[in-house]
């Protein structure tokens, strides 16, 4: 079973909800242009993910490889691999966001929250804002 982005509030069957978290993700400052020009996204992630941030999830990887609780670093990989439409290098560089992109976790600068290592909780909101566009 692979996890899919949920575009509506429709829920998965109860047996699958157990191990997933729902997040709100917002893009701003022009970054939304890389994501189909949609600013607000609602998505569901498994609560346990591969430590290597592999986003091609299947049962084997999860049972076999090393895992960790879903964190912001994983979220970035997920967004890049599943939602981003063009020019991934404008979003990520070396396992983190490209310098010049600000990240807020529940309206707090991610630098105060452990950056990529922040472990996501159900209903968290993560905002990515580019500072590189336009004066």
């Amino acid at each position: 079973m692979s996890f899919r982005i949920m575009w509506s509030n429709q829920t998965f069957p109860p047996t699958l909800i157990m191990s997933s978290i729902t997040l709100r993700v917002e893009f701003g400052g022009g970054l939304e242009l890389l994501f189909s020009n949609i600013k607000q996204h609602k998505l569901t992630l498994p609560s346990i993910v591969p430590s290597n941030n592999g986003t091609k999830l299947n049962g084997e990887v999860l049972s076999g490889g090393e895992t960790k609780p879903a964190d912001v670093e994983y979220l970035m990989h997920h967004l890049r691999d599943n939602l981003l439409q063009e020019r991934p290098e404008l979003f990520m560089e070396d396992n983190t966001v490209r310098p010049g992109i600000l990240v807020l976790i529940n309206d707090t600068d991610w630098e105060l929250e452990g950056e990529g290592e922040y472990a996501l909780k159900d209903n968290d909101e993560v905002v990515f804002i580019s500072t590189l566009h336009g004066g």
């Binding site: 701003g28 400052g29 242009l33 600000l102 807020l104 600068d109 500072t131 566009h133 336009g134």
Partner: peptide
């Protein structure tokens, strides 16, 4: 960074396309 954060927290209306 602070200008963008200021705009974000004040919810100012700005345009950001290249």
């Amino acid at each position: 960074k602070e200008i963008v954060m200021y705009a974000y927290f004040k919810k100012l209306d700005y345009f950001s396309t290249e």
